[in-house]
Structures are given as structure tokens and as C-alpha cells.
Computed example of a mutant assay.
Amino acid sequence: MALARSNRAPRTPTPPKGETVARYDTYLQAQKAVDHLADKAFPVQMVTIVGTDLRMVERVTGRLSYPQAAIGGFMTGAWLGLFVGLLLTLFSSPGGTSPFLPSILIGGAFGLMFSVLTYSLSRGRRDFTSTSQIVASSYAVLCHAEKAHQARLLLAEIGGVESGWPGRPVAETGTEVVEGRGDPQDRPGA
């Protein structure tokens, strides 16, 4: 009995394997390409999306002040208090008072206090809020060599396909070689 190949990601950082079958400007386009392959019953476990030329992008979402820090801290603490209150409610006696509301208020108060304290210690070095993400300049879709040609054919329907060979060879007559790697014995009439 043969064991099936594992579809798990490698445990250690490992470069991706396979041929580049297509390249796209955005992750959504690459995702759409893999979805297209899945729709055509292609074995997508042989496909990898690789982002190249990575950069961290931090988008500033607004200005930060003491009131905003206090409100954000209270809300975060209240969510934690809600969770603790639910746990305490589950393990409290049925006839006793519910710790639900007090735990939300205590959690909110501690969140507010820690948020304002942290903001005051920053001394104005970071008076803004932001979100960060890693963005690539392009996304390549790689496929195992044994299925790369089939993937290229399927992706030709939506675009972005790259040639399987670096620089298509041109025959001496000026016509493009359709099959083969461009070896002289593969060229027509050679």
C-alpha cells in the first residue's frame, strides 16, 4: 500500500518547488487563478502562490488622543470582562448573584487604566493609529513540473500565463518553435 503525499506545510522555512505557470499583480488575481484551477478539477494541492519583493505597509488610520486611548482601552477591557463574566456565570451557584455585569465593568476599568498609562508613557512619540500588512509587488503561481503544462492551459483562459521556458527559441526561418526546448534536433527541418 502506497502512502499518500502529505499536504501539510513544511515545518521549517523551505523554498517553494515547481515551475512558474502564471504571474499576477495582486493577490486577489492569483487567488482567482487558483480558484479557477479548482473549478476545473485540477489537483490544486500541487499549486503554490508566492509573493515576491515583499514590503511592510503601515496605513495610518487616524490621530490618537487621551480620550480615544481611554475609550479603546475600556472597550478592550470590557470584552475581556465579558469573557471572564461568562466563565464565572457558568461556575457560580444557580441562586447566587451573577458576576456578569461587575466583571464587565472591572475589566473595562482595568483596560482604560492600562491604555491611558501606556499612552502617557509614549510621550507623544506615536500619536496615531495604524494597521500593518505585508504586501508583495507581484504574485507567482507555481505548480509541480508534472502538471505545469496542464495548469498553463487552464490558466490561459483567464490570463497571466508565463511560458514554460525562459525565452522562447526562434527557428532560423523566423518562425517560433512550438514544441520542444529549442534543441536543434527538436526544430522542424533540422
Rank of each mutant, 00 (worst) to 15 (best):
F128A: 12
D127N: 13
G18Y: 11
S120F: 08
G96I: 03
A151P: 09
L28A: 15
D127H: 02
S115H: 05
A109E: 00
E58H: 12
G108I: 04
K32V: 04
T173H: 01
L155M: 04
F91C: 04
F91T: 15
Q29Y: 02
L37M: 06
Y27N: 08
E176P: 00
T97A: 11
G77D: 04
A22I: 03
R11H: 14
G182M: 05
L87M: 14
G77C: 09
G73L: 09
A171K: 08
G73E: 09
F42Y: 14
L155W: 01
L90T: 11
P166R: 07
Y27V: 05
M113N: 01
N7L: 13
L105E: 00
G107T: 03
A9G: 04
Q150W: 03
A33E: 05
V161P: 14
A156K: 14
T52D: 06
G95Q: 13
H149G: 08
A70L: 15
Y139I: 11
A171N: 08
V21Y: 00
G180S: 09
G174D: 06
L101H: 06
Y24Q: 01
H144R: 15
I104V: 14
L112D: 01
C143M: 07
D39A: 12
G72H: 10
A109H: 11
T12N: 12
F114M: 10
S93M: 09
E58Y: 04
T131Y: 04
T89D: 15
R187N: 00
P16T: 08
H144A: 15
G72W: 10
P13L: 02
A151C: 11
S115M: 10
G51F: 01
W165D: 06
R126Q: 15
R168M: 08
A33M: 06
P169K: 03
L54M: 15
I158N: 01
E157G: 12
R125D: 06
E146F: 11
V44F: 02
T129C: 04
Y139M: 10
D35I: 02
V60W: 14
F91I: 15
A145W: 06
